[in-house]
Amino acid sequence: MTDIQQRGYAHPDVLVSTEWVAQHLKDPNVRIIESNEDPLLYPSGHIPGAVEVDWTTDLNDQVVRDYLGREGFEALASRIGITRDTTVVFYGDKSNWWATYAFWVFQLFGHTNAKILDGGRKKWVDEGRELVREVPYYPATHYQAPERDDHTLRAFRDEVLEHIKRDGQLVDVRSPMEYTGEKLHMEGYPQEGALRGGHIPGAQSIPWSRAVKEDGTFKTADELRAIYLQEKGLDPQQETIAYCRIGERSSHTWFVLTYLLGFAKVRNYDGSWTEWGNSVGVPIVKGDKPK
């Protein structure tokens, strides 16, 4: 039994270790995908054979605030040389913020054969494992994707409004000061893109980073349950919506709740605070209490 399997996760198979990746670098059925916030990291050195999926240029529509559509996803999948049977393994910077974000977008298109490298880029680098600058080439594939499913894993503003009317579970994964509304932006520094500060009524404040350890790997299921269930009182059987500023940090928490703790139904509100904090007439709570 591996270390990951011993941590008590609901779906341990969705996480792989650096050693597992090292053993599958030449596996034709596995594609390693790096997704970062810092655009210089992948070209400066990446896991041998890894391709890059960039959150701005690859995953987002370039005009509308939305994700790529079916045809765009098929083109992306073809470019990185995967089929629907390929196991895709995401990793990246920021303890896998963007890796889980890319993972989440892949789930919108039903590519369930997907995993996250536990500890992300940092752990691979810290272990002194090989990085290369050579960009690999894979023959293009013919990938047929279903239409994007926006209902199961994604929440929109009006659905969040309905959710709070029903007293539904919400998790705000931003920093405590963003949650309280104390700071919209650093003094003397640019706006963070929202006119109002605070949080969505009823949201529990659980910064995303509480789910990971110093080395970037995920905490054990018991440690996570102590935070999300015992401390914050979340019910795994209740529908849950996570949000942050633009949906990237909350995709990390979506991953934790869904796969590591086995919550029944979790959706990511990717409009997040940049939409809610700018919307006219939506309710907002300031301070450190959920309501």
Binding site: E37, W55, T56, T57, Y189, P190
Partner: peptide, 30 residues
Amino acid sequence: PSDIVFDLFGKDISMGKGQGLMGIVNMVVY
């Protein structure tokens, strides 16, 4: 101006990353 960061990096950097880099420029200006 702090937005020289976008002249260097282009427009496709995240808000958070852009802010951090603009913060360096702002500190120099300050």
